[in-house]
Computed example of a mutant assay.
Amino acid sequence: MTSKTTGKLAATLIVAAMTTATAGGAWAQQASGTTGGTSTDSSSAGNTNGGGLPQIEQQGDVSYTSGGVGLDESRALLREQAHWPLSLRFTGPTADYLSGVHVRIVGGKGGEVLSTESMGPYMLVKLPPGSYTVYAKYKDQEKKQAVTVAGPGKAKAAFHWNIQ
């Protein structure tokens, strides 16, 4: 076979595959009864906030959100950091992003104000101004950092583990 024939054959196969994929997608929409929709929906699954920001949770007087596994969520959380008093980041070996980090935040007087699990590498927390200790536990390794919350976008803490 000549390279010209091979090139034509490859192009024909690509066009056939694309046509089949497009037709299959249209068939799937018809079969499910779903038509229309937009590609500009930037909400996350189960989220009413829009803009790709994960669902905001509430625990006592503290609001928080976490995620960032997908690119849209990561961008939304990074964009929103400036509006939240505390932002946390969790990474592993070779700067891998981590989820499933257990987070506890204790106030200056020793009272726990938040205990939850991170759904991704980023967590944003709304806390009143003050001094706090953030405990972050990944697998069996717990780390802690003192933070002073002074207003939106001011306090940041990054936690890094060398375990997988």
Rank of each mutant, 00 (worst) to 15 (best):
G70E: 12
N49R: 14
E73T: 04
S131P: 04
K8R: 14
S131Y: 01
K144S: 15
L13E: 13
S42T: 15
G153Q: 04
G60R: 07
E142G: 06
V125W: 04
T5Y: 09
E117W: 09
A21M: 11
T35I: 08
V106G: 02
Y97A: 14
L53F: 03
V15P: 09
S3Q: 13
G108Q: 04
M18E: 11
T133N: 12
G151Q: 13
D96V: 11
V15T: 15
D96R: 05
G120D: 02
T116E: 07
L98E: 00
G111C: 06
F159M: 05
G67M: 05
P121K: 04
A31T: 03
A82C: 10
V134G: 01
A155P: 06
A158F: 06
H83G: 15
V149L: 02
V101M: 01
Y97C: 09
S44I: 03
L114W: 03
L77C: 06
S66A: 04
G111T: 13
T38D: 03
F90E: 03
N49T: 13
G120V: 00
L78I: 12
K4D: 15
L124A: 08
T133A: 09
I105A: 05
L127W: 05
T148C: 07
A155G: 03
E57A: 12
T19E: 02
K4R: 15
K143C: 02
S118F: 01
W161F: 07
P121A: 12
A16M: 11
Q81T: 14
S42C: 09
